[in-house]
Design a protein around this nucleic acid. Structure first.
Lengths: 366, 366
DNA sequence: ACTGTTAAAGTAAGCGGTTACTTTATTCTA
DNA sequence: TAGAATAAAGTAACCGCTTACTTTAACAGT
């Protein structure tokens, strides 16, 4: 056993013959203490290898300089990327992050939220699970006065901070793109409607189909989960029913990956036998064959905006703060699927129109 | 402002006319308290929405039920996957995880380690940055009696827990595979030698080359970092020097991805113009074209083993615990690179030999 | 010279729990 | 039925730090 050399303020105080309070104040740069002694104390603290005990500090100071983050998954480009940016932002602002992963399980989610409250986090950013249907726990968090912000996946409750992508318009853009390329036999591998991103993306799909007067074939609308397996299974189902559409818009990129996997197994070809476009970008999509076109979600933007709003909420907590609801626009990223080179000029033209109308840059990457 | 309804033990004690200590004991199921009152107190606590204050609990109980994890990156399959498994294991054991991301920066690493100590974590699992060269901070952690475990990336210091892959044998297997397929003009995009995984993988490469009496061409050994850019830049360098080998073994999969990117830009073909194999697997490799063969690192295993050893260390801290050093074997995963179908039978034969000799299953996925 | 300010430090109390020790009532033993 | 043992609760102190309030001395103004 190494002898635990754990310096506390008292040790420093004893060493220079002053009180603990003086040491505490000096270390924090409190104006009560003269510059001279303040410097002396800091020097000695460093010499003695003093490290503050945050548990004690936070218990009395009543804030923890810690932000809790709850996400459904982590080994996933979308969340991995967001979390990385949240960390960066937290680090800049001298906050620590307590990360919890609910694994798409509502029970875990509740438990994690309770733990975060017990840890006295200053605020919480959460992306709810696809099965969350009881929203009471969120009321509890609010009741306790802990700033709360929902990111990307948002429950239908009011008076809370939210930051989300414009799922409906994004989905609309994707499906409109499919239509412009000439598809009418269009399917949608959707998410559950109980969660905003599932519902909104479905509605965007519907909007586009309606706008162009294309009937929706319910057989081609598969409402399942957000994972690779869901895409794989849905595709296999349609294939074995011998009822494939010409092109599919998927609710997330893992679902599209599931299709790629199934297609490979079945010896089919993308885009010849089946074309695909998805909601959500990931690094790997550039290396797929063919490269997957998608709706890009600026992860850095959602992470930064979420942190900014939450930090603002934390600072203004005492003097009142009204919830904010932000929507972030998405990008249409065209690569090698759902793109017909013969129509290139027409597409570029349409994209310009769209940009003018929505005051938004749609990226086209041929 | 919502009126913060924050029940504390005192409130419960007042309500039933008993002392705070009784409540504390009851809630923890201490035998001092009769079953009857214990039940009563628990019921009331639930009614009042009591949640313990971990800061207070941990301050007096002197442990935090929290484990600190420091990794260099997070939006990266390898670490993302490991972290996910660490979370699972922590959750099972009722531990919380405090995750810090050093972003391959040694300064950040030190700061995070200090913060974790200030947070009074019960133990720390760390994968050091590629630039960490000052190991004093690790001594400080040890000195303070905080169980510490190095995972995958390990500094050259003694008397610490370590869990790593058998990098040398893994690299050897990869390079031997290249040789068996018939390559002799073999390059290695390596990492820095200052870090174990960089050095060991290089040594494994050397071992294989030596065993088959193939001279190493120093021009083809590029010692850089572990990222996609490093692979891209190294390849571009060799290409512009008009000095490409026939096949390259890369130290990590992002480096291989960098090669894929460069190859695509240059209009070359894998494996015809250049063949590749890498250390480290990722989900995306199955979807690359061609599918990338690699040395698979069982991430669940390293995560679980690390957690088990650390938890054991935490529990046995008082009564002494001697550091453990574990090595996990890797898998040779053959897909569509560095595989010559004409040699299929010979390869399978060799693989069997190898398995017999090393008592280890090498996976071949044709 | 006397009050009013200010600078620089100290004292006491408390954050919300836990631990070690004590008290009180009840039961057991001989 | 006295004395010991046990069950069930309570008291006091403390974990390491912060906040609110107080003290002391030096200095300024009139």
């Amino acid at each position: 056993m190494a002898s635990k050399h754990n310096t506390i303020m008292k040790d420093i105080a004893n060493k220079i013959g002053m009180s603990v309070v003086t040491v505490s104040k000096a270390l924090r740069g409190h104006p009560d203490i003269s510059h001279k002694t303040s410097q002396k104390i800091k020097t000695i603290a460093k010499e003695m290898g003093y490290l503050p005990n945050y548990l004690a500090r936070n218990l009395s100071a009543r804030n923890s300089n810690t932000i809790g983050v709850v996400v459904p998954k982590i080994a996933h480009y979308f969340f991995g990327s967001i979390i990385e940016h949240i960390y960066n932002k937290a680090f800049e602002n001298e906050y620590e992050i307590l990360l919890s992963v609910s694994r798409e399980n509502a029970k875990n989610e509740i438990k994690h939220l309770q733990t975060l409250m017990s840890m006295k986090v200053d605020g919480i950013i959460i992306s709810i699970t696809q099965e969350t249907s009881d929203f009471e726990i969120f009321e509890v968090v609010k009741q306790r006065g802990i700033p709360l912000l929902f990111m990307d996946r948002i429950p239908p409750i009011s008076d809370v901070n939210t930051v989300a992508f414009n799922d409906r318009i994004g989905a609309f853009n994707a499906v409109e793109q499919m239509i412009k390329v000439g598809y009418v036999r269009i399917g949608h591998f959707a998410g559950m409607e109980s969660i905003n991103i599932g519902l909104q993306r479905y509605l965007g799909f519907e909007d586009a189909m309606n706008k162009y007067n294309i009937p929706i074939n319910p057989d081609w609308v598969m409402k399942a989960g957000f994972g690779e397996d869901d895409g794989y299974n849905s595709f296999m189902k349609l294939y074995s029913d011998d009822n494939l559409p010409d092109a599919i818009f998927t609710v997330t990129y893992p679902v599209a990956i599931g299709i790629y996997k199934a297609v490979k197994e079945l010896g089919l070809k993308i885009p010849e036998d089946i074309d695909v476009i998805c909601f959500g970008d990931a690094n790997m999509q550039k290396f797929l064959s063919p490269q997957l076109s998608c709706i890009g979600q600026p992860t850095e933007q959602i992470a930064e905006l979420s942190m900014e709003i939450l930090l603002d909420n934390i600072r203004k907590k005492q003097n009142g703060f009204s919830p904010r609801n932000k929507i972030i626009e998405t990008d249409l990223i065209l690569r090698e699927t759902c793109i017909n080179y013969k129509n290139r000029d027409r597409i570029l033209n349409d994209v310009n129109d769209h940009n003018n109308k929505h005051n938004r840059i749609v990226k086209v990457q041929f």
